[in-house]
């Protein structure tokens, strides 16, 4: 290996003819496969997280609170929304959540899009068949057809159930999104630690978050490299799946190597299995007040819900 290497360049590499595809650059553009969509989705997600960090640094109502107070309040209200049996209760809660978002300077358009774009709409599609009498038996309010002389169609119970599930899903996601976009990631971690999540988990969570981006970059690189080498597309979803299979192995190899190096970097700085961290959280009066308000709000919510009947 030590002797100098003289490489003779094959002549085809030096010729300027297009080697494999004499037809030139004609052919239809194919729309991106799911891998491509996922990868672009991945970098979008990265940007979105960074944008959220932006929101978390604005001076709004929720940004001023301790992450533990926010997480605690969020949990209480989530349980409240889970236990509420009436659409009215959930809608009232949703209005309050929107008001909180406004007070925290979260742009309404962004907030609605972030919450509604995927899960609640998906939920709506999923629960639609449940409004029919064939799934949810009950009093038919809109007759669509009859079967054995029985009117069939949308039932009151089905409609109410669908509305209930969709609005509960929307309220729950709104609560979670509201807390996470108004809290910088490291404060959120500190909040989880404050709520009693063990240090080992916090450390794993913090590092995993960091390495998602790094591994995402390597997947993107692998994909780009593959795409650059692929000329024809045959059944693109199948090749895409083959790519997933092949790259998963290489990715694990990379992950393994990465974890080994990170481990050495930690050990080099004195890590001995139990990480110590800077603790900077202090509960102030405002946080306690906020927590008390959350308790009262949940109690109010459930009392009102009971008063509306069972």
């Amino acid at each position: 290996m030590a002797e100098h290497t003289t490489t003779t360049t094959p002549s085809w590499l030096l010729s300027s003819n297009v080697g494999l595809c004499p037809c030139g650059c004609i052919g239809k553009r194919t729309k991106g496969s799911f891998v491509e969509k996922t990868l672009t989705g991945g970098s979008d997600l990265l940007r979105q997280v960074m944008f959220s960090d932006d929101l978390a640094r604005r001076s709004g109502l929720l940004q001023r609170l301790d992450p533990r107070a926010k997480l605690g309040g969020m949990l209480l209200l989530l349980i409240g929304a889970g236990l509420a049996h009436h659409l009215e209760t959930l809608l009232a809660t949703y209005v309050v959540v929107l008001a909180l978002a406004g007070a925290s300077r979260v742009p309404l358009g962004f907030f609605l899009k972030r919450v509604w774009l995927f899960v609640p709409i998906f939920t709506l599609i999923v629960v639609l068949p449940a409004t029919l009498s064939i799934v949810t038996h009950g009093d038919v309010v809109v007759e669509l057809w009859s079967w054995h002389g029985q009117p069939q169609g949308l039932t009151a119970q089905g409609l109410r159930s669908a509305a209930l599930v969709v609005s509960r899903v929307a309220v729950s996601i709104s609560l979670v999104v509201l807390v996470t976009v108004t809290t910088p990631w490291n404060r959120l971690l500190a909040g989880l630690r404050g709520l009693g999540v063990p240090r080992m988990f916090i450390l794993v969570i913090g590092m995993a978050y960091r390495y998602i981006f790094l591994l995402l970059d390597s997947v993107t690189d692998m994909y780009e490299a593959r795409k650059a080498r692929t000329m024809a597309r045959v059944k693109h979803d199948r090749t895409a799946r083959a790519f997933v299979g092949a790259s998963a192995g290489a990715l694990v190899g990379k992950a393994n190597q990465l974890s080994e190096e990170v481990h050495q970097a930690m050990v080099a700085r004195g890590y001995r299995g139990e990480a110590r961290v800077l603790d900077t959280l202090r509960l102030r009066r405002a946080d306690l007040v906020a927590l008390a308000v959350a308790v009262l709000a949940t109690a109010l919510m459930l009392t009102a819900d009971r008063m509306l009947g069972r």
Binding site: L189, G206, Q264, A265, G270, R276, L278
Partner: peptide, 20 residues
Amino acid sequence: DTQVFSPTVREEVAFGCLQL
């Protein structure tokens, strides 16, 4: 990238001192 593993720069720089 392997050496900078903490959620923030401050925590990263503090890591060694705290471990010791």
